[in-house]
Amino acid sequence: MNKAVTKEEKAMRRHMGLRATRAISNTVIHILLIVISIVWLIPFIFITLQSFRIENAMPVGYVIPHQWGIDNYINLFKSDFPKWYLNTFIVAVVTALIQTIIVLCMSYTLSRFRFKMRKPLMRFMLILGMFPGMLTMIILYRVLADIGLTQANAVPGLILVYVASSGMGYYVSKGFFDTIPKSLDEAARVDGASRAQVLTRIILPLSKPIVIYTILTAFMAPWGDFVFARYVSFGTSSGMNVAVGMYNWLNNDMITTRYTMFCAGGVIVAIPVAILFMCLQKYYVEGVTGGAVKG
């Protein structure tokens, strides 16, 4: 009997020990995660704080402004910033719409149809994707310059280039279409629907997540594009997007007067995009994980 008690006690103790170690490890992990979160948030907190600093406009070694104010935001709207913002917004909206249509056409076709050139076409695009895109920019810039879509007219030029090659990014949505059972198509075909009707009546209503994912990524990309937009606007302020315009503010000769304005601009650009992203986060996560699993 005595023995039995000790056994029970031992089990009990081990149980308590396990619980204790788990509690300790969970606490450690909590602390680690909080530290990570702080590290990840710091730049965003700093940039917001600095956008309200008005005692000087240079980069400084302290975080909390000595004098608070919204002068930077007021100056921002007196500069060319609203024009850049509008440019980027137009490019982003139009690109998102057209690119989504193109990507869906491409991925749906490659997922559903079995034609002779399908495999060679996919392999060809894989190889094309291995060329550094930077190279093609030089010539695309010259071509756009030839047809007058650079500098002040950069917006349509940018849209044209973003949209034109977007068919190459079909992987994620093809992976999604692959998961929709083919029997649905076949049933509709038996009922006399044409291929086009199958797409518009059956597949599209089922594809909400991937459509939203495609729109979201297509909408976000122009906000960050920097290299090609700089080529195309080529020093003409009215044709710049936010990235190009604000990059110039951090040049050595401008940084002392425009640094806090850059911070304010960053906040203004980031807030709507981030809010939109956060609202549609679910779809983004689905797309990203799906894309990685299927390769």
């Binding site: 990840w40 730049p43 965003f44 700093f46 070694g61 906000w223 990235a243 650009v269 980031a270 981030a274």
Partner: peptide, 27 residues
Amino acid sequence: TILVLTIAIPQFISLLYVSKMFSLNGI
């Protein structure tokens, strides 16, 4: 959500700002 914030904010803002944070007279 906190981690995903870095994806949501355009890279040219976050990267340029972080680059300046580590500059000679930076934060």
